[in-house]
Computed example of a mutant assay.
Amino acid sequence: MMRDAVQFESADSRVTRPSFWNALPERWTSDAEETLVCCHVRQETHDVKSFFFRSPLGRAFVFEPGQFVTLELDIDGETINRCYTISSSPARPHTVSITVKRVPGGKVSNWLHDTMKPGTPVRMLGPAGEFTCARHPAHKYLFLSAGSGITPLMSMSRAHHDLAEDRDIVFMHSARTPDDIIFARELDLIASNHSNFRTAFVCERVGTRTNWPGVTGFLSLPLLKLVAPDFMEREVFTCGPAPYMQAVRSLLDEAGFDRRRYHEESFSFETLHAEPDAGAAVEAGVPAAGAPANAAQFNISFTRTAREISCGAGQNVLDAARQAGVRLAASCTQGMCGTCKVKLLSGQVEMKHNGGIRQREIDQGMVLLCCSKPLSDLVIDK
């Protein structure tokens, strides 16, 4: 039955209709609107918080579950870029959330936990990334995560739940203690709503939960066979600390699992890729490992520091700079976070990035040194 449009009036004339109630909001892109606003902060565990962001113009967030965004933060007078996996569901497009564990000594995670609150603006880039079940459709999935590596798999789980896609999913999460299980109650809710969604938790120790009924110890092949006897038939997605993922790969290889159906992701930018020791610099012009000795060499000039180095045609500029002892800011080294973004004053490069730079920045002559190979001599504003 058709109804006439209804006009709404607020008793308080100062209250306006929120833009996110619009039927078809415009899609958010960082090129059109780089600054979002924090609208909510939620404590997940004693050292984990989720931060929710909204477009001030009411734009909607479109992404694939498992993808990440890059935050551009000003901390103590320094601009720092950090990648964080989106933890929210793409089926709830009016907000986007990240979930961050406080890392002892971590500059960014501690700043977020101590400073970020509703109303705080933040510059964001993305979304980007290929770690997503949307690109690997399957009837049966196995999600394996540890610690804060749960976030991309939670986004995938939330998406299936919100879209009423009752796929056969086994979600197995490892944590230090039961109190460290992120999203425990929500995972239980999803499992209660979807008959084919099953969860299993394994904790290193019980901690303060002396009545913990679950498994203690570590993920093992016998335990995996117990929780998911048909795991050999499933599409596997894994995220967590590097030692955890190495253990997962080892036990799957032991079982003879087809690696073509294995997908993994890991972000730990608080500790990844420490700057090299300047005393370990090698002579400029030495080809990168694996590069032909007779490969073309280009001259790279850094205007601010008055440094000049040589870089092979098949070598990323960041690698050549580090070999020559030039210290440059960088985090992911995979073209994702934007930390090594600089202005290219002259010359041309071949850049294959993974979402860490905006198109308008490329149009303005910006490049990411970690994923740029020279096609000519270069002059860089650095």
Rank of each mutant, 00 (worst) to 15 (best):
V15E: 10
S148W: 00
L142Y: 07
E34F: 05
T99S: 09
I150M: 07
G335V: 01
T303A: 14
V349E: 03
R234I: 03
S301A: 12
D381H: 11
V100E: 01
P118G: 08
Q359H: 12
D47K: 11
T271N: 10
F131I: 02
P56K: 02
I86G: 00
R259H: 14
K343N: 14
P292A: 11
R158P: 14
V282E: 13
A280L: 15
R14C: 07
P137K: 06
H273V: 04
G285Y: 02
G119F: 04
A11Y: 15
Y141Q: 02
R102L: 13
G77A: 07
A191K: 04
T271M: 07
I182P: 03
G217F: 07
T333V: 13
S109F: 11
V342N: 05
V96I: 15
P118K: 11
E64Q: 13
P90F: 08
G314S: 14
F51W: 07
D31Q: 07
E64L: 14
T305W: 10
P90G: 06
N110A: 08
S55P: 02
L369W: 06
V248M: 06
T85A: 09
T199G: 04
C311H: 00
R307Q: 13
R307E: 07
L71G: 03
K341S: 10
L223R: 00
R358M: 15
G365S: 05
F183T: 01
R42H: 10
V317I: 14
A228G: 02
A281N: 01
N316A: 11
E34P: 15
A184T: 07
V100L: 05
A247E: 05
R54Q: 13
G240I: 06
L226R: 01
G356Y: 02
P118Y: 09
R249W: 03
Y262L: 12
G106I: 10
M172I: 09
V215Q: 07
L378P: 10
T35D: 08
A291D: 14
F53G: 02
H263N: 11
E204H: 05
A242D: 09
R17V: 14
R92Q: 08
F267I: 06
M336D: 01
C39W: 04
P90T: 09
K343C: 09
A281S: 11
Q246G: 10
G356V: 01
L189N: 08
H136S: 04
F269T: 05
S372D: 09
M232W: 04
V100M: 08
S30M: 03
Q348F: 13
I190D: 01
N193V: 15
G325K: 11
S192Q: 13
R198V: 08
F231N: 01
V215C: 01
D12E: 12
I86F: 09
D180I: 04
L153D: 09
D230I: 06
R102D: 01
C133I: 10
A23D: 12
D188E: 14
F257T: 02
D166V: 05
A330P: 00
E130D: 13
A184N: 05
N22T: 14
H139Y: 10
M336L: 15
V122L: 04
F269Q: 11
I182D: 00
S268R: 04
N211Y: 09
M336W: 02
N354Y: 04
S174A: 15
S220V: 04
P152Y: 08
L272C: 07
Q246N: 11
